[in-house]
Design a protein around this nucleic acid. Structure first.
Lengths: 255, 255
DNA sequence: CGAATGCTTGACTGCGGTCAAACGATGTGG
DNA sequence: CCACATCGTTTGACCGCAGTCAAGCATTCG
């Protein structure tokens, strides 16, 4: 394991790259070369205002990028305007990276908050070429692919078989787990930069009902929200309610 | 393209293997070696009665197998008995094949009808080893992985943002497309071996509501059902209703 | 300060769930 | 061959979760 430090404020390159490295190194031990490659991505940053469409549904896949700061979403919009969010993309998540040889993107991708990304072409190429020096990263991304699929399956269960209350509880735990991995959770509290409308579009609910569900959860003393921060007051209860199962390894692998 | 014939009745090895070959060859041109490998899977068949659990949710991934005849499903069951079907597995679909290095299965897999499978370890190994002689198959399975993800995303949209009527219409078109690829659709008609309860568990509905939705669709003269066969009377109307987009290439690739 | 955006609330509606019973097909054993 | 059990489908009555509509607040931001 490589030791890294986390002293800086958010939006600082060092911290970001360290978060990412920590995330991947948690999955697979990475070589110096691989860490160097990740670290090298820090240059060539790009800013996208909230609402920017980074990838067109059915269009060609996006240029490989990795999120540094902010949230994005994979989205589909129906002809009549109904909208479904497939997944939230968080700092450290990639898009257009190491995908199958898809001629076309399976969903649109949109910046949900002001977004900062880095060019990940170098990473993408190394993975595509299956560069043996990047064996660890290759495995890490394979694992991430599995986690993504697991997330999607959980999403299906939420939408197909859970009540609004259960869905919300599950999503909150989901986000906590993912944000915790990149060091964005402290004291069971994290910044939730989503409007209730975005939550609704993820959970297959109406805005009004999302609002009422959140209120009920507050009344039940399961969560607390103030100024964009969400605090889980009783994660265990939330987990029971929503049948949540942890996916991420909580400790780095020994291999 | 390899020419194959389809004269035999179902459940015959030749026909099955030819169907599968046709399916994969439709995605990528296959070498004689690859076709030989597929053809070789025909031995070592296994029968599973309906209801057999082929793979345990969260357990270790299933032994590589390919479905010859019958339908299976990827399923999750909640502690209180609610059930969600992620996808239906049809003849020619594999399980435990060419997956990422997952320590555990992401869902249970269950035979929904009496099922016949063949051992696909040889195929699985060749893909895992990235045997260069199987480059075409490797690509074909990568494409199939993409199609599977696309299906899953569509499923999310159905469950999250579509009405019962729309969901049903979409699923019917979905199944028609997949069954057509393996030659099981004739005159917009195919055998649908699912109970309304299984449809309900896939579509996130109750049995009763599935029943009423189907009846409405019959009254609207969009479909017709008799003795386990489903006929699409107006596929275009169904597509408009459900915003269905074709995923499978309708013609083999030129490459 | 006003405009825009997002949150909250209330009243009402309706899609789809639940419960219960009847009906039909299939299959099995006496 | 029939009696009976089982499984799946159908129907009706009723309910409730979540959607819709509409208005009023609260923040944030130019």
């Amino acid at each position: 394991m490589t030791t890294v430090s986390f002293q800086r404020t958010p939006r600082e390159p060092f911290v970001f790259i360290d978060r990412v490295i920590r995330r991947y190194a948690r999955l697979k031990t990475l070589s110096e070369y691989e860490i160097g490659l990740l670290r090298g991505l820090g240059s060539r940053r790009e800013n996208h205002p909230a609402g920017t469409e980074l990838c067109n549904d059915g269009g060609k896949p996006p240029h490989p990028r990795m999120i540094v700061d902010g949230w994005a979403g994979r989205i589909r919009i129906l002809p009549d305007g109904r909208r479904q969010i497939f997944t939230f993309l968080l700092p450290g998540d990639g898009m257009g990276i190491c995908t199958r040889p898809n001629p076309r993107a399976l969903s649109a991708t949109m910046a949900l908050t002001p977004l900062q990304t880095v060019d990940a072409a170098a990473l993408h190429d190394a993975l595509l070429r299956r560069d043996p020096r990047c064996a660890g990263l290759l495995e890490a991304f394979a694992v991430i692919g599995g986690l993504d699929e697991a997330m999607l399956l959980d999403h299906v269960v939420r939408l197909g078989r859970q009540t609004a209350y259960e869905r919300m509880a599950h999503l909150i735990l989901d986000l906590r787990e993912r944000l915790a991995v990149i060091g964005l959770v402290e004291d069971d509290t994290f910044i939730l930069p989503l409007t209730q409308e975005l939550l609704a579009d993820a959970l297959g609910l109406s805005v009004v009902h999302v609002n009422r569900t959140l209120q009920q959860m507050r009344r039940d003393e399961l969560i607390e929200t103030k100024q964009g921060r969400l605090k889980l007051l009783d994660p265990d209860a939330l987990a029971v309610i929503s049948d949540f199962r942890h996916r991420q390894p909580t400790a780095p692998p020994r291999a």
